[in-house]
Amino acid sequence: MTQESMFAGSNTNTQRIDREKMADSMNTPLVNVVSGETAEPETVTNAELKAAACQASLGIEDGRIPDNKLTASTVWDDYHGPSNARLNRPAEYPTVGSWSAKYNNISQWIQVDLGVLVGVTGVLIQGRAYNVDARLLGGSDCCPQWVTEFKVQHSNDGIDWHYVLSHNNQDAMIFDGNTDQTTVVTNLFPTLVEARFIRIQPTAWNVHISLRFEVLGCQE
């Protein structure tokens, strides 16, 4: 780079910065010198800022949420109950590493009671843990089970439920689930929702409805 071109680049940058500072101090919009068009400032809503900051795990995986706050529509048996649905829970004989529904249909669900209204921004989902004691439960390949698609509902009282809506705010959003037993898949909501109860409703699955999960939101 020649001395002349180096100084030219420096001067151009300085002029741009000075112009921005001047426009800011005068509280006037910047104007594109080439096109003459006014540059509209990017705006971020308070809801978007809050959602970006509120992605803490809310206590399913680490046990802050007690077992009796995890409930489900049905269970395969006592060894497949909702308390086994904590994210990253291993399979520990005789219980298994997941909640498993008794039936495979779209009426099945698992939910958590967070105890108070919380700003919720998403969920983490995982398949049924590989069972190191599979030989005791029917075979070395037990059990390749996970949810491939699901919807999420939220409620303030556990009675009136509302779906997390897609970006058009008209249809229930269908979230991507898992493709294996171990990978954790993160699904963020289009917008933050205020809720005490979060319910996962599987709509498609591999072999059988089984899952582990966590809820993300605003940590007090």
Rank of each mutant, 00 (worst) to 15 (best):
G59H: 01
N88F: 11
C54I: 02
L136P: 03
I106R: 08
S100P: 01
A56F: 04
A129N: 14
C143Y: 15
V112H: 06
V118I: 08
A56N: 05
I65D: 13
N88K: 08
P90Q: 05
A134F: 13
E61N: 08
V96H: 02
T121S: 14
N105F: 11
G81N: 07
V132P: 10
S57G: 00
N84M: 12
W76H: 10
T74V: 04
L124Q: 11
R64C: 06
R89V: 05
S57R: 13
R86Y: 08
N88A: 02
G59E: 05
C54G: 02
S73W: 10
S98F: 02
D113V: 12
L117N: 15
V112W: 10
I110Y: 00
R64G: 04
D78W: 01
P94I: 07
T95N: 06
Q55C: 10
S140Q: 13
W109A: 09
G115T: 12
G59W: 01
K102V: 01
L114M: 11
S57C: 08
D77I: 02
L87T: 10
P66N: 14
P82S: 04
W99N: 11
Y93M: 00
G139F: 06
S57A: 06
S83C: 06
L137T: 07
D78K: 06
Y103H: 09
D141H: 07
V120M: 12
G97E: 01
A85C: 07
I110A: 13
I65A: 13
G97S: 05
D141V: 09
T71A: 12
R135E: 12
V118Y: 06
Y103C: 01
D113W: 10
V116T: 15
G119C: 12
Q126A: 04
S140W: 00
W99T: 07
G59S: 09
Q126I: 14
D141A: 07
H80K: 01
W99Y: 08
H80L: 02
S140R: 13
N84R: 15
R128Y: 11
Y79H: 03
P90F: 07
K69N: 14
R128K: 15
I65Q: 10
Q145E: 12
R128C: 13
E61P: 04
S73M: 06
N88L: 09
V116S: 15
A134M: 10
V112F: 10
V112A: 06
S83F: 09
Q145H: 10
G59D: 02
A101T: 07
C142L: 01
I125T: 15
S83P: 00
R135N: 14
Q55R: 13
Y93D: 09
V96M: 00
Y79F: 13
V120C: 12
V123A: 05
G122E: 04
Q55E: 09
G59N: 05
S100Y: 03
G119S: 09
T71N: 07
A101P: 06
D133V: 00
D77E: 02
E92W: 00
L58V: 07
D77H: 05
I106S: 14
D77W: 08
A53R: 15
L70N: 14
R86S: 06
G59P: 10
A72W: 13
A134D: 12
A72S: 11
W109S: 03
I110P: 05
G81V: 02
Y93W: 08
D62N: 15
A129G: 15
A72T: 04
T121P: 03
Q145P: 00
C143T: 08
